[in-house]
Write a protein that binds this DNA or RNA. Structure first.
Lengths: 330, 330
DNA sequence: GATGCCATTGTACACGTGTGCAACGCCTGC
DNA sequence: GCAGGCGTTGCACACGTGTACAATGGCATC
């Protein structure tokens, strides 16, 4: 049909060099920052490159540079709006620094393993993990290759693996104080038993604060922190007038569950965590602790960059600050 | 400190070959499907590889193979739960077929351009687009390089660019029929004016069906299809008793807006679109049209695979089927 | 005019892999 | 015993790029 019919060879730096009447090295240098090229040749090269539609092959470049600018993002629980927002922010932060995120969904521990293994084949410049933490042996392998790993909201301390964690101590404390100030007297915290380290820390800080203030508080364990478990837990929450839900997603379930049970929401104080967009919606209007995942993403990328320069440095932990967002429920 | 102290050279196929006492070609063949290697050497190679922690370097491989198994995913609107769920399913579908998704957020048209350009540097095996469609010139460049592009829920017909589109005709028709069957007499459809092709098609099918059945129906334009605009639109919806919201996300806003205005939700029929998880929540319990984004992701990847084999084939359009999910609101 | 410095350029090697080609050895069938 | 076939193997080249090194030329300084 048209000219593209014969799948023409990819245009390489050789083609550009020939057309511009310079050596191939000059072409390479033109597209390499801080390389020594005269303005004239640079001009000629750019002209020829544009005419031919030349693009530097980053894969070939990475072969010699030993850095691909690809960053693995191993993610779980993207059905939760907070988690997917987190992925979004991480991707934006990475792209902003000229990295390319490879998104690998890994909901089970076994697939985390497989995905991380895949990444070793791609010479990634680093890995961000929001799923379960990879096994220590695998982390050591990454460390041996000087590939930084940063865990987000995971507890496991692993050698040479940085972490960024939400300030759960403060979150738990503020949640307790807020409920008490609002007049609650019989408090409870609803939290998944078998789940995230960070949610459990919030629960503990909450309970500790209550103990410290001599207030009545109790833990209501559920399986995992989602809408359905929140809804179900609401039925058993009849004895309490102040509830801390360790994430908003579950808080919505609790609120709907309370309504379904005919309880007056006005009489019961609720504090959530994360401040996902839906928390501001009229149906819930939830008082909650904002976990700024844009800032968190920046912190994670920053840690990544730091470790690229010093792979054997002792592992660091960065805290993401939380803020109370006051709305109707407390 | 320990042995990893000196950042030891990456282990290559040379190292494995030496240790296994075979040629490097034998190593390569061992890790290449359908290559001719005797069971004995394969055994030796695997043993040596395991001992050394060898991994094939996919970037180097892609250089010679001319295919990287990387697939660009250009995405917009990840704040909308449906869109992010879509990304999740796409990522899963790609990983399932042994591709690696590069996630590039591109909310403005200009950044779509930039991201697509980036992808050309990475020799991607294909591109999936859920953001704005890339400009035709850029698409042609991809076609010239025989890189498949698949647009998801975008209208623009571009040469050699496949599309998968939700069955909006059916969706609009069923929405109208459902509202009428439920007893509504004064219908309206709420839809963003400057937005997605696919949402507008739903609106048109809805209005056409109403016209065909001699029912009263009207369009209520808003700016974009999100919660806030839905909430605001509810105030002006006093004259209607049957509403079709072109996506669930906005339907929630409409429902909350109606409640805030003191209207009795029981008296007004509402149908949404997408069936995001929140639609099943007790607070909304929304009757809606399910757009199965797992199936849609599969279709998209299938189109991608098809075009890899036949890059110059005429562009195809695949329709994603929709299903009515009956809940409380209609 | 000779000397030294500096910016620029080209040559040549390296990065880690897949595979065509020819050579080799083993087995089968006559 | 020998021809022919087939499964394996190794050599060598290719993929597209960055950069060390030496060479070149221009300019300022003595």
């Amino acid at each position: 049909m048209n000219e593209g019919d014969t799948p023409r060879r990819k245009v390489t730096s050789f083609d550009v060099a020939e057309r511009a009447g310079v050596s191939r090295a000059a072409v390479s240098r033109t597209f390499t920052p801080n390389a020594s090229v005269s303005p004239e040749t640079r001009e000629k090269v750019h002209k020829a490159a544009k005419e031919l539609g030349y693009r530097v092959n980053y894969l070939a470049r990475s072969l010699i540079n030993r850095r691909s600018d690809l960053v693995g993002v191993v993610a779980a629980g993207m059905d939760n709006p907070f988690r997917s927002q987190q992925i979004h922010e991480i991707a934006k932060a990475l792209v902003g620094r000229n990295f390319r995120p490879i998104l690998l969904p890994a909901d089970e521990a076994e697939s985390v393993n497989r995905m991380m293994d895949q990444l070793l084949h791609y010479n990634v410049s680093g890995v961000l993990v929001t799923s379960d933490a990879p096994p220590t042996a695998l982390c050591e392998e990454f460390a041996a290759h000087a590939i930084p790993i940063v865990l987000i909201n995971k507890g496991d301390a692993i050698a040479h693996v940085d972490r960024v964690i939400s300030d759960d101590e403060t979150a738990g404390r503020i949640a307790a104080e807020t409920l008490l100030e609002a007049g609650a007297t019989r408090l409870a915290v609803i939290c998944g038993a078998e789940v995230s380290y960070t949610a459990r820390r919030r629960q503990e800080a909450f309970l500790a604060t209550c103990r410290g203030l001599g207030a009545s508080a109790q833990a209501m364990p559920v399986a995992i922190n989602d809408y359905g478990n929140g809804f179900a837990a609401a039925a058993a929450a009849a004895d309490f007038d102040g509830l801390f839900c360790v994430n908003d997603y579950m808080a919505f379930g609790v609120i709907d569950g309370l309504r379904a049970a005919g309880r007056d929401i006005g009489k019961i104080r609720i504090v959530g965590h994360d401040d996902i967009p839906q928390a501001a919606w009229a149906a819930y209007d939830l008082t909650t602790l904002r976990q700024p995942c844009d800032i968190q993403a920046e912190q994670a990328v920053e840690l990544l960059l730091g470790r690229m320069d010093a792979p054997r440095m002792k592992e660091r932990t960065e805290l993401t600050p939380v803020t109370l967002i006051r709305r109707a429920t407390a």
